[in-house]
Design a protein around this nucleic acid. Structure first.
Length: 172
DNA sequence: CATCCAGTATATA
DNA sequence: TATATACTGGATG
Protein backbone atom coordinates (compact mmCIF):
# COMPACT_ATOMS: atom_id res chain seq x y z
CA UNK A 1 0.00 0.00 0.00
CA UNK A 2 1.49 3.23 1.10
CA UNK A 3 5.05 2.95 2.29
CA UNK A 4 5.10 6.50 3.51
CA UNK A 5 2.64 5.70 6.26
CA UNK A 6 -0.11 8.25 5.96
CA UNK A 7 -1.38 10.17 8.94
CA UNK A 8 -4.93 9.63 7.81
CA UNK A 9 -7.10 9.33 10.90
CA UNK A 10 -6.52 12.34 13.00
CA UNK A 11 -9.70 12.81 14.97
CA UNK A 12 -11.52 10.19 16.97
CA UNK A 13 -14.98 10.84 18.32
CA UNK A 14 -17.53 8.66 20.09
CA UNK A 15 -21.05 8.00 18.91
CA UNK A 16 -23.19 7.00 21.87
CA UNK A 17 -26.02 4.62 21.00
CA UNK A 18 -28.35 2.26 22.79
CA UNK A 19 -25.95 -0.57 22.06
CA UNK A 20 -22.78 1.18 23.08
CA UNK A 21 -20.31 3.78 21.93
CA UNK A 22 -19.20 3.61 18.35
CA UNK A 23 -15.89 5.19 17.50
CA UNK A 24 -15.57 7.35 14.42
CA UNK A 25 -12.28 8.48 12.98
CA UNK A 26 -11.93 11.41 10.65
CA UNK A 27 -9.16 12.44 8.35
CA UNK A 28 -9.04 15.76 6.60
CA UNK A 29 -10.92 14.21 3.71
CA UNK A 30 -13.82 12.81 5.71
CA UNK A 31 -14.84 9.81 7.75
CA UNK A 32 -12.13 7.20 7.42
CA UNK A 33 -13.09 4.62 10.03
CA UNK A 34 -16.02 3.49 12.11
CA UNK A 35 -15.69 0.89 14.83
CA UNK A 36 -18.19 -1.11 16.81
CA UNK A 37 -18.61 -0.53 20.55
CA UNK A 38 -17.00 -3.73 21.79
CA UNK A 39 -14.19 -3.34 19.34
CA UNK A 40 -10.81 -3.39 21.00
CA UNK A 41 -9.82 -0.46 23.10
CA UNK A 42 -12.31 1.91 24.63
CA UNK A 43 -13.04 5.18 22.95
CA UNK A 44 -10.17 7.51 23.44
CA UNK A 45 -11.19 11.03 22.78
CA UNK A 46 -8.42 12.85 21.08
CA UNK A 47 -9.57 16.08 22.57
CA UNK A 48 -6.02 17.19 22.95
CA UNK A 49 -6.35 18.84 19.62
CA UNK A 50 -9.21 21.17 18.96
CA UNK A 51 -11.80 19.54 16.73
CA UNK A 52 -12.42 21.64 13.64
CA UNK A 53 -15.94 22.78 13.06
CA UNK A 54 -16.11 20.88 9.81
CA UNK A 55 -15.23 17.63 11.53
CA UNK A 56 -17.84 18.23 14.17
CA UNK A 57 -20.39 18.73 11.46
CA UNK A 58 -19.34 15.48 9.80
CA UNK A 59 -19.60 13.77 13.12
CA UNK A 60 -23.10 15.04 13.58
CA UNK A 61 -24.10 13.62 10.22
CA UNK A 62 -22.37 10.35 10.99
CA UNK A 63 -24.07 10.07 14.35
CA UNK A 64 -27.44 10.66 12.81
CA UNK A 65 -26.77 8.09 10.09
CA UNK A 66 -25.69 5.47 12.60
CA UNK A 67 -28.68 6.13 14.81
CA UNK A 68 -30.98 5.83 11.83
CA UNK A 69 -29.48 2.56 10.76
CA UNK A 70 -29.75 1.15 14.23
CA UNK A 71 -33.43 1.97 14.24
CA UNK A 72 -33.99 0.31 10.91
CA UNK A 73 -34.13 3.40 8.73
CA UNK A 74 -32.02 4.47 5.83
CA UNK A 75 -30.00 7.64 6.47
CA UNK A 76 -30.68 10.45 4.02
CA UNK A 77 -27.25 11.92 4.19
CA UNK A 78 -23.80 10.53 4.80
CA UNK A 79 -20.60 12.33 5.67
CA UNK A 80 -17.83 12.37 3.08
CA UNK A 81 -16.11 9.00 3.19
CA UNK A 82 -12.36 8.81 3.01
CA UNK A 83 -11.59 5.42 1.52
CA UNK A 84 -8.15 6.35 0.32
CA UNK A 85 -6.62 3.77 2.63
CA UNK A 86 -7.88 0.97 0.43
CA UNK A 87 -6.45 -0.47 -2.76
CA UNK A 88 -8.20 0.00 -6.08
CA UNK A 89 -9.77 -3.39 -5.79
CA UNK A 90 -11.01 -2.75 -2.27
CA UNK A 91 -12.44 0.62 -3.15
CA UNK A 92 -14.27 -0.93 -6.06
CA UNK A 93 -15.77 -3.52 -3.75
CA UNK A 94 -16.76 -0.92 -1.17
CA UNK A 95 -18.37 1.23 -3.80
CA UNK A 96 -20.39 -1.74 -4.99
CA UNK A 97 -21.41 -2.37 -1.40
CA UNK A 98 -22.77 1.14 -1.08
CA UNK A 99 -25.24 0.29 -3.81
CA UNK A 100 -27.00 -2.28 -1.66
CA UNK A 101 -30.12 -0.64 -0.34
CA UNK A 102 -31.45 -1.23 3.11
CA UNK A 103 -33.44 -4.39 3.32
CA UNK A 104 -31.77 -6.20 0.48
CA UNK A 105 -28.80 -8.49 0.44
CA UNK A 106 -26.47 -10.06 -2.06
CA UNK A 107 -23.74 -12.64 -2.11
CA UNK A 108 -19.99 -12.25 -2.28
CA UNK A 109 -20.12 -13.81 -5.71
CA UNK A 110 -22.55 -11.18 -6.94
CA UNK A 111 -20.29 -8.41 -5.73
CA UNK A 112 -17.43 -10.09 -7.54
CA UNK A 113 -19.44 -10.04 -10.74
CA UNK A 114 -20.51 -6.47 -10.18
CA UNK A 115 -16.92 -5.30 -10.22
CA UNK A 116 -16.04 -7.39 -13.23
CA UNK A 117 -14.15 -10.16 -11.50
CA UNK A 118 -16.64 -13.01 -11.16
CA UNK A 119 -14.05 -15.47 -9.96
CA UNK A 120 -12.56 -13.25 -7.29
CA UNK A 121 -15.21 -14.11 -4.76
CA UNK A 122 -12.82 -14.86 -1.99
CA UNK A 123 -10.91 -11.70 -2.58
CA UNK A 124 -14.20 -9.86 -2.25
CA UNK A 125 -14.66 -11.41 1.15
CA UNK A 126 -11.22 -10.24 2.12
CA UNK A 127 -12.01 -6.75 0.88
CA UNK A 128 -15.19 -6.71 2.91
CA UNK A 129 -13.22 -7.71 5.94
CA UNK A 130 -10.90 -4.79 5.31
CA UNK A 131 -13.80 -2.36 5.06
CA UNK A 132 -12.95 0.49 7.46
CA UNK A 133 -16.49 1.81 7.60
CA UNK A 134 -19.01 -0.93 8.31
CA UNK A 135 -22.62 0.16 8.64
CA UNK A 136 -22.25 3.09 6.30
CA UNK A 137 -20.56 0.85 3.79
CA UNK A 138 -23.05 -2.00 4.30
CA UNK A 139 -20.79 -5.00 4.29
CA UNK A 140 -23.22 -6.66 6.66
CA UNK A 141 -25.75 -7.00 3.84
CA UNK A 142 -23.50 -9.41 2.02
CA UNK A 143 -24.32 -13.03 2.70
CA UNK A 144 -22.70 -16.23 1.52
CA UNK A 145 -24.09 -17.74 -1.67
CA UNK A 146 -25.55 -20.72 0.14
CA UNK A 147 -27.91 -18.32 1.88
CA UNK A 148 -25.97 -18.55 5.06
CA UNK A 149 -24.87 -15.61 7.07
CA UNK A 150 -21.22 -15.88 6.22
CA UNK A 151 -18.72 -14.19 8.46
CA UNK A 152 -18.06 -10.80 9.92
CA UNK A 153 -14.84 -9.28 11.15
CA UNK A 154 -16.29 -7.33 14.03
CA UNK A 155 -18.26 -10.35 15.21
CA UNK A 156 -21.23 -12.19 13.80
CA UNK A 157 -23.44 -10.84 16.55
CA UNK A 158 -23.25 -7.42 14.94
CA UNK A 159 -24.08 -8.77 11.53
CA UNK A 160 -27.13 -10.53 12.95
CA UNK A 161 -28.15 -7.48 14.93
CA UNK A 162 -27.93 -5.19 11.92
CA UNK A 163 -29.79 -7.55 9.65
CA UNK A 164 -32.45 -7.92 12.30
CA UNK A 165 -32.76 -4.16 12.63
CA UNK A 166 -33.14 -3.84 8.91
CA UNK A 167 -35.65 -6.69 8.96
CA UNK A 168 -33.72 -8.34 6.18
CA UNK A 169 -34.51 -11.77 7.46
CA UNK A 170 -35.06 -13.40 10.74
CA UNK A 171 -32.20 -15.54 11.66
CA UNK A 172 -32.42 -18.07 14.44
C1' DC B 1 -22.28 -32.56 7.51
C1' DA B 2 -16.99 -32.64 6.71
C1' DT B 3 -13.19 -32.00 3.44
C1' DC B 4 -10.99 -30.47 -0.33
C1' DC B 5 -9.83 -27.62 -4.05
C1' DA B 6 -10.15 -23.64 -7.28
C1' DG B 7 -9.20 -18.90 -7.76
C1' DT B 8 -7.94 -13.79 -6.31
C1' DA B 9 -6.02 -9.94 -3.45
C1' DT B 10 -3.22 -8.81 0.44
C1' DA B 11 0.08 -9.23 4.25
C1' DT B 12 4.31 -10.83 5.84
C1' DA B 13 8.93 -12.83 5.54
C1' DT C 1 9.57 -14.31 -4.70
C1' DA C 2 7.13 -17.62 -1.68
C1' DT C 3 3.66 -18.69 1.62
C1' DA C 4 -0.41 -18.18 4.44
C1' DT C 5 -4.82 -16.14 4.97
C1' DA C 6 -9.64 -14.36 4.03
C1' DC C 7 -16.76 -12.24 5.82
C1' DT C 8 -16.28 -17.70 -0.74
C1' DG C 9 -18.18 -21.17 -3.71
C1' DG C 10 -18.57 -25.42 -5.77
C1' DA C 11 -17.62 -30.31 -5.85
C1' DT C 12 -17.25 -34.54 -3.55
C1' DG C 13 -17.58 -38.34 0.04
Amino acid sequence: MDTTKSEACVFELAIPTAVGDFRASYSEAGLCALNFPSDKRAVKESSVRPVPRLVRRWHEITSRAVTKLLSGNSPETLPPLDLSAGTDFQQRVWRALCGIRLGQTCSYGEIAEAIGKPTATRAVGAACGANPIPLLVPCHRVLAANHRIGGFSAGLKWKRLLLAKERTFTFA
